[in-house]
């Protein structure tokens, strides 16, 4: 079965995004596939490249990087949600003349059409957070 995930909550508030990443690993382990993970609203903070977590707390970005590296899971940040939160990849940082990109390169910034496409091409779309 083809799954996509919609992640709405901020990674530093509660553990919803960690649950989402763990769910994705379970889906893959059971022989299903993840078509796409779409991060919307505060969920876009998940892609923060510069986030530093205390040693006694879980690293909130690592599970997503593992999904991207091990299983080529597509991680998309909603562009309108991301930009207003200061989440810019290199090309957006250039476009808006900001000093640095803030998004980890494992994440792609794109539009809501990617969520619509995920709905159309997935058997299940699971929402986390909000």
């Amino acid at each position: 079965m083809i799954y996509s995930l919609l992640v709405l909550s901020c990674p530093t508030s509660g553990n919803c995004t960690q649950t989402a990443a763990a769910f994705a690993q379970c889906v893959i382990a059971r022989g299903h596939s993840i078509h796409r993970v779409f991060f919307l609203d505060a969920g876009t903070y998940t892609g923060a490249a510069a986030a530093v977590f205390p040693q006694d707390e879980a690293d909130r970005i690592k599970p997503w990087l593992e999904l991207a590296q091990q299983h080529a899971v597509e991680l998309i940040l909603c562009i309108s949600s991301a930009l207003k939160r200061g989440m810019l990849d290199q090309s957006e940082a250039r476009r808006y003349e900001k000093q640095a990109s803030t998004v980890h390169p494992a994440f792609t910034i794109s539009g809501l059409g990617q969520l619509v496409d995920a709905c159309a091409n997935s058997d299940r779309l699971i929402t986390f957070g909000g």
């Binding site: 919307l40 809501l112 059409g113 969520l115 159309a120």
Partner: peptide, 11 residues
């Protein structure tokens, strides 16, 4: 916004 995007893609 999600609703409008879905409608724009004729879903």
């Amino acid at each position: 916004d999600v609703a409008l995007a879905a409608a724009a893609f004729e879903q």
